[in-house]
Design a protein around this nucleic acid. Structure first.
Lengths: 192, 192
DNA sequence: AACATGGCTTGATTTATATCAATTTCGTCA
DNA sequence: TGACGAAATTGATATAAATCAAGCCATGTT
C-alpha cells in the first residue's frame, strides 16, 4: 500500500476526502515504521511529536495510576493513535504507547501536519474532523463507563472493539475495563 | 458588556486572540438570552443548533440513564456550554441543558459559526482550540473518575470547580460525581 | 402561622467487585 | 520437546458504596 493510498484511507475513515494534491502533500510527511510485539512506541516522559496511523497490528496506550498499569485505549488496523495531552500541550507524556503485535505504523509528525493544515483547507478539515470525532468518542466512552456493571462493560467492549477483544491479552482488557483480571475471568465464565 | 467584549473574552479564555474585525464578525452572530432558574435551554430530542457562552449564572447538562438523571457538566461565568454529540453529529440530543440560576447567556448559532471559520483563519483557530481543549478536558475527566474513591472525587471536584461546588444543589453534584446523595452527604460529613 | 414539599442527613443492611490465596494452563525459548 | 515463568482461573473473604428506611430541616405557599 502506497503512502498516498494510506492518506486516502485515513481521510475516508474520518468521513472526509482529499484530492490528489492534498493526499500527496499529506503522504509526503508519513514515516513508515515496522514495529515488533512488546516494543514501546512512546515512552514515559517523551513529548509526543507524531500521531500514528496503524496499517497492521495492534497497539495499546496505557499509563500508571498509583503504580498500577491502566490501559486507556487499543488501536488496530486504520485506527489513529495519539496522545492528546502530550501532543497538543507539548508536555512530557504520562500515556505510553506499546505494540501488542508485530506490525506496521505510519508516523505523522504533528508540527509538519499542522503546517499542512495552514496550507491546505482539505487537510485542515481533516484535522478538525479528527478532533471532533475524538471528542465525541471520548465523551461516549466516559458515558459508557459510568453506569455499567463489569459484565455490561465487557459486553459493550466486545461489541465495539471485537478485534481488540479477540487479540489483546486479558490482563490489558481487564485494566481497560476497570476491573481485575479475576473479575474479567468470571465475567467471561458467565459467573458475574 | 458589549458583544464584542464577549467575543474577546471568549477568545482569551481559550488562549487565543481576535483582531477587531474578527471579534466584530463573531459578535454579530451572538444572540443574547436572559434565562431564569429552572429553565430548560435545550430539551431532549432537539437538535443543538447553538453553543452557549455563559455571561452570568450557572447551568448544568444532564441526561437520563435507565430513568435516572445524571449530571454531566456544570458551566458558570465564561464557560462554554455545548452538546458535542448533537451539535457535531446533527442528531437529536439526549443531553439536556438547564439553568440552575437566573442569568444571561449568549447563543452562538453553530452553522453561522462554522461559516465564519471558513472566512476567518482567526475564528477557525478559535474553533480548533475549542475542540482541542474540550478533548483534553474530557480525557482528563475520564481519567479522574476512573481511580478515585467517592471522597477523592468530591475533593477533586471542589478544587476544580469551586463555584459549582458552592452554588449547585447537592443532588446534582452527587449525580455528577457518580454517587448517591446519601454518599455525598457522608463524604461532606467526613464519614467516608 | 401552619403546612406541605423537596432536599439533606443518619442508620441498618445488601451487593458487586476487590483482594488474597492457591492451582492450572499457556506461551516462549533453550 | 520440555520446562519455566507469566497469565488465567477458581474459591474464600473483605470492603466501599448502594439501597432501603425513617426522620429532620428549610423554604415557600395558602
Amino acid at each position: 500500500m502506497t503512502p498516498v493510498d494510506i492518506a486516502h484511507k485515513f481521510a475516508t475513515r474520518l468521513g472526509t476526502t482529499l484530492d490528489e494534491q492534498a493526499a500527496q502533500q499529506l503522504a509526503s510527511i508519513f514515516v513508515r515504521q515496522e514495529v515488533s510485539k512488546g516494543e514501546t512506541l512512546l515512552a514515559e516522559g517523551q513529548v509526543a511529536r507524531n500521531f500514528l496511523i496503524v496499517e497492521q497490528g495492534l497497539t495499546r496506550q496505557y499509563y500508571y495510576k498509583n503504580g498500577i498499569e491502566v490501559t486507556e485505549h487499543f488501536c488496530c488496523e486504520w485506527d489513529v493513535v495519539y496522545c492528546t495531552d502530550s501532543m497538543l500541550m507539548r508536555e512530557p507524556t504520562t500515556l505510553m504507547i506499546e505494540a501488542l503485535e508485530d506490525g506496521v505504523v505510519h508516523n505523522v509528525p504533528f508540527d509538519e501536519f499542522r503546517q499542512l493544515c495552514d496550507e491546505s483547507p482539505q487537510i485542515m478539515k481533516l484535522y478538525v474532523r479528527l478532533l471532533e470525532v475524538g471528542l465525541v468518542e471520548s465523551l461516549r466512552k466516559t458515558d459508557a463507563q459510568r453506569f455499567e456493571s463489569a459484565r455490561e462493560r465487557y459486553e459493550t467492549f466486545v461489541r465495539q472493539y471485537p478485534e481488540a477483544a479477540r487479540r489483546a491479552p486479558g490482563k490489558h482488557i481487564a485494566s481497560y475495563l476497570l476491573m481485575t483480571p479475576e473479575s474479567l475471568s468470571r465475567v467471561r465464565a458467565g459467573l458475574l
